[in-house]
Every structure is written in C-alpha cells, then in structure tokens.
Amino acid sequence: MSGQRPAVRLIGRLRRWYRRAGDLGAAYYSAPYRAAIARARRDEEDLFMLMVFSETLGIPNPATWYTLELQPLLLDRFHDWHKRMGMPHSPLDHFRCC
C-alpha cells in the first residue's frame, strides 16, 4: 500500500500536468482567432434568427409552424440582436422584449 503511494501520486501529478498542458495548448490554438470566430458564429445566429422571425417580418416561410415554438426560447437573443442592429427597442409590434 505504502509502496504504491508515490506511484499513485506521480500519476496524479502527471495527469494534472497533462491537463494543464492541454488547457494552455487550447488557449494557444484559440486565442488568435477568438474574435473572428465569435463574429462568424454571431452572423450564423443572426441568420437563424431571421429564419425564425421571418413570418413576423413579412417574409413567407413554410416552416413557420415549427419555428413558432422556438420564439420564446430566443427571447434573450432577440433582444441582443435588435440592439446590435441599432434598434433600441423591439422592431416587432407583437413581440416585445423590452
């Protein structure tokens, strides 16, 4: 039992080192491009938002029946979106988030 302890401790330490190295590596991989990727992801989300709210904006969308139930889930993001688009308040009369 006592003979195992240093080995167990060593493995534990190695595992911690490996995890730390992995974290540093991940930071090295993502740091330079964090902003560009966040922007790209946001653009994708904006497109998705447009799909979900297209009918309310007057664009016919055959999938409205299905996207309707997503609207409450997107409430927070919708708020962020219209603020990002330069509109201080919700542009949709019947979808007031603020």
Partner: peptide
C-alpha cells in the same frame, strides 16, 4: 474562407 477552416 472562415478562419477556423484553414487559417487557424
């Protein structure tokens, strides 16, 4: 191309 595809 988006940066994550190739550049990153």
């Amino acid at each position: 191309l988006p940066v994550w595809v190739l550049l990153q």
